[in-house]
Computed example of a mutant assay.
Amino acid sequence: MILAVISPLFIVTVALRALPFNLLRYLKNSEFMTVLGRTMPVGVMTVLVVYTWYGQRESPGGFVAVAIAVAATYLLHKWRRDVGLSILGGTITYMLLVNLVF
């Protein structure tokens, strides 16, 4: 009886983990993946900014700390065009503002 429960769970788990890798070969050179590659970073950053602004309304620093950190992220990205540096710089700016200033 235990085997009757575990077997389908095992099959579903393995299938769900293998499915993305099997589909990747069909999507690798598609126009969909090209568009997704161009738009996904902007979409992710937009969701993170909106989530941060909404979630930090009543936190120490509130809107001011978030606005300064977003501005720092924007300026770093305009200056160096390095996504990692922009995200790290904005995060450090926000953490410093919240923990040391406000």
Results as ranks from 00 to 15, higher is better:
residue 96 L to E: 09
residue 10 F to Q: 10
residue 66 V to F: 09
residue 31 E to Q: 15
residue 38 R to W: 07
residue 70 V to A: 04
residue 73 T to I: 04
residue 52 T to V: 01
residue 61 G to C: 02
residue 31 E to I: 15
residue 8 P to R: 02
residue 29 N to G: 02
residue 37 G to P: 01
residue 47 V to N: 04
residue 70 V to L: 08
residue 3 L to D: 13
residue 76 L to P: 03
residue 48 L to P: 00
residue 20 P to D: 06
residue 74 Y to H: 08
residue 69 A to S: 03
residue 60 P to W: 04
residue 91 T to H: 08
residue 63 F to I: 09
residue 28 K to D: 08
residue 29 N to I: 00
residue 81 R to P: 00
residue 65 A to N: 01
residue 80 R to H: 12
residue 23 L to S: 02
residue 98 V to K: 01
residue 47 V to Y: 10
residue 92 I to G: 04
residue 100 L to F: 03
residue 54 Y to M: 09
residue 70 V to C: 05
residue 89 G to F: 10
residue 36 L to F: 13
residue 30 S to F: 02
residue 98 V to W: 03
residue 75 L to I: 03
residue 21 F to P: 04
residue 9 L to H: 04
residue 8 P to L: 05
residue 15 A to S: 07
residue 97 L to Y: 00
residue 88 L to C: 14
residue 92 I to W: 04
residue 28 K to N: 05
residue 78 K to L: 12
residue 45 M to Q: 14
residue 80 R to P: 09
residue 52 T to K: 03
residue 90 G to S: 07
residue 75 L to A: 07
residue 98 V to G: 01
residue 64 V to Y: 05
residue 82 D to F: 08
residue 65 A to Y: 01
residue 96 L to P: 10
residue 26 Y to R: 10
residue 101 V to P: 10
residue 36 L to R: 10
residue 72 A to N: 06
residue 84 G to H: 03
residue 53 W to I: 07
residue 77 H to T: 10
residue 62 G to F: 04
residue 29 N to W: 06
residue 98 V to F: 03
residue 80 R to C: 03
residue 63 F to W: 12
residue 32 F to H: 13
residue 74 Y to Q: 05
residue 18 A to F: 11
residue 13 T to M: 05
residue 23 L to N: 03
residue 67 A to I: 11
residue 9 L to K: 09
residue 45 M to A: 15
residue 85 L to A: 14
residue 66 V to N: 02
residue 39 T to N: 07
residue 42 V to G: 01
residue 97 L to A: 03
residue 10 F to N: 12
residue 11 I to N: 01
residue 44 V to C: 06
residue 42 V to W: 12
residue 96 L to K: 11
residue 59 S to G: 07
residue 65 A to Q: 01
residue 52 T to M: 05
residue 63 F to G: 13
residue 13 T to K: 08
residue 30 S to T: 08
residue 25 R to L: 13
residue 59 S to R: 10
residue 8 P to V: 06
residue 25 R to W: 13
residue 58 E to W: 08
residue 56 Q to K: 10
residue 46 T to I: 10
residue 55 G to E: 10
residue 82 D to K: 09
residue 36 L to P: 08
residue 45 M to P: 13
residue 62 G to Y: 03
residue 42 V to H: 09
residue 47 V to T: 12
residue 60 P to L: 06
residue 71 A to E: 12
residue 30 S to K: 01
residue 42 V to F: 15
residue 26 Y to H: 12
residue 54 Y to G: 10
residue 97 L to Q: 00
residue 64 V to G: 08
residue 46 T to M: 12
residue 70 V to Y: 04
residue 12 V to Y: 08
residue 49 V to C: 04
residue 50 V to D: 06
residue 99 N to R: 11
residue 34 T to E: 11
residue 97 L to D: 00
residue 2 I to H: 14
residue 34 T to V: 06
residue 5 V to R: 14
residue 24 L to W: 15
residue 26 Y to P: 01
residue 75 L to Y: 05
residue 49 V to F: 06
residue 68 I to N: 00
residue 86 S to F: 03
residue 23 L to M: 06
residue 99 N to D: 13
residue 40 M to K: 09
residue 19 L to D: 12
residue 21 F to N: 13
residue 5 V to C: 13
residue 83 V to L: 15
